[in-house]
Amino acid sequence: MAEKMATRQAYGKFLSEIAKTNPDVVVMDADLSGSTMTKEFRAAAPQRFFNVGIAEQNLYAMATGLAHSGKTVFASTFAMFAAGRAFEIIRNSIGYTHANVKICATHAGLTVGEDGASHQAIEDLALMRTIPGMTVVNPADGASAMALLKAVSEMNGPAYVRLGRAAVEGIYEEDAVFEIGKGVCVREGGDAAIIATGIMVGEALKAAELLKEDGLSVRVIDMHTIKPLDEEIIIRAAEETGTIVTAEEHTVIGGLGSAVAEVVAQNCPVKMKLVGVKDTFGESGKPAQLLEKYGLTAQDLREAVKALKK
């Protein structure tokens, strides 16, 4: 199993490697290079690193200009300021022109922790998946982040990659293989399926273990790509288990749960529960405390599955 690490750490590692192998890659940041880990690229290829200062709109519009000049641009800031503040630039300049810009947004979700609600992006997946042609990726651990970032770098067109601040347990082996748009069944089971994304995959695996004690065999799917969504794996889970719980460190409005429900409702309606942040803002606290307070733990997933299986 890969070591415990934050997905942003994996991003830094990925950047220091691609700096050596791909001369067309340009990396940009908005005064957060020490936090987003783009500093790793700056160290390896300073002439291809640009810090635009605290100006996220300019970050993504300039990235578009570089992309339309043949560059593969990785442009990073916190998820709040990428998907949130710069949304309309991402929609009109990057999305509408299908620019080859990889929006690698760190510090997503509640697990930003102590910075509190102003910095806790819990709506970024919902915003990004509304943009036509945008690939939306949310890795669960360091190994999958490395692999998915590589896949994203090899595709042409815009992508949003959601990365976290806090260290997460390794789920995959270092050499695990991932394909954009193909969910991974990380645990088999026939009584129910938990479809999880990002750091909630780890919680889902713990929940499945707890549910075993309750006599239930629960499938866990890592939906690392929110868009394009793997409809096949969802429909199969619905047909074979009849019970679906989704899990995301994100508002339940418009994110993974909504995306899965859109597929389930139109293809194979089954009972569902959406586990995520309810219609509310976050607050300051330690990541683990926040996950507990906002109902994002393995225990919450266990209860959601049990409620559906009653």
């Binding site: 640009f50 200009g65 009109n92 300049s93």
Partner: peptide
């Protein structure tokens, strides 16, 4: 057409990116 525009303020910023790319190359 070098860039899709219409939402004001974005074109000049995209142009900066293009100029930077030309410098780089």
């Amino acid at each position: 057409i070098e860039m899709s525009t219409g939402s004001l303020g974005q074109g000049v910023s995209v142009a900066c990116g293009m100029a930077l790319a030309n410098k780089l190359d």
